[in-house]
Amino acid sequence: MAVIEVSGLTKRYGDRTVVNGVSFTVAEGEIFGILGENGAGKTTTVECIAGLRSPDGGAISVLGLDARRDHERLRGLVGVQLQESQLQDRLRVGEALQLYASFYPDPADWRELLASVGLTEQVNTPYAKLSGGQKQRLSIALALIGNPRVAILDELTTGLDPRARREIWKLIRAIRDRGVTVLLVTHFMDEAERLCDRLAVLVDGGLAALDTPAGLIAGVGDVDGYRANLEDAFLALTAPSHDS
C-alpha cells in the first residue's frame, strides 16, 4: 500500500521553478531516500509532503489524506525533522522531549528514545550548550517522539560522527520494522546505499532517476576500470549536460 503518493509536484519561487513535475510513491514500511545536489529541490519536496509549503501544482497524498488540506490531521501522524530549525537556547534536552511528548496522544517513551540517540548524559544540558551533532540527534528524537506512522527526515545524519550515524541507522531500521514509513534526504552515499530501499535522484528540481541503490549502480558501467559504486551513479546522473 502506498503511504506517500506524489504526482506532478511543482513548486515555483517567483518565476523560478524549483521543483518540476516530480512523481513517486513510497510504500508502507519502506525507507525511501532523496538524493540531489545542493539546491536541487529536496527540502522543498519533503516540506511540501510534510504540508509546510503549498505546491503550485500536482497532488500529494499521505496516508490517504491530502498533504495540505488535511495537514491538521496529518500533524499527529507524521514526524518531521527539519533541515534548519533550532530550539530555545535554555531549553534542556529532557524538557524538550517531555514537552514534545505531551503534544501527542500516544508518545514514545522519552527516556528510551533519549538513550537510542545517545543523549542520556545530556538530559539536563540546555540546547545552546549541545554540540552540532548532539543538536541533530535531539532533532531526530523529536521527530520520532510522537510514534509517527510516517517519518520525514531532512538531512538525517548531517554533522554526526561515524558511530552516531550507525546508531541512527539502527534506530531508523528499528522503527521501520514496526511499520513506520521513512522518507529521508541525505548527502551520504553509504547511508543511501545501506539504509534506503529505494532512491529518488533530483536534478534541478526534476526527477532524474528512481530505483533501488543496486538498480542505480547497475545503470552505469565500469568507471576508470573499476566497478561503479553509488557515488559514480549519482555523479553520472547529476553531471552538467554537454548538449547545449
Binding site: 499527529g76 507524521v78 514526524g79 527539519l82 530549525s85 533550532q86 530550539l87 503534544f103 521527530a143 510522537g146
Partner: peptide
C-alpha cells in the same frame, strides 16, 4: 527570536 530560529516552524509540524 522564535520565528527567526525556526522554533515556530518546528511546532507547526506537531499537533500543537
Amino acid at each position: 527570536q522564535y520565528r527567526e530560529r525556526g522554533v515556530l516552524r518546528r511546532l507547526a509540524t506537531t499537533p500543537v
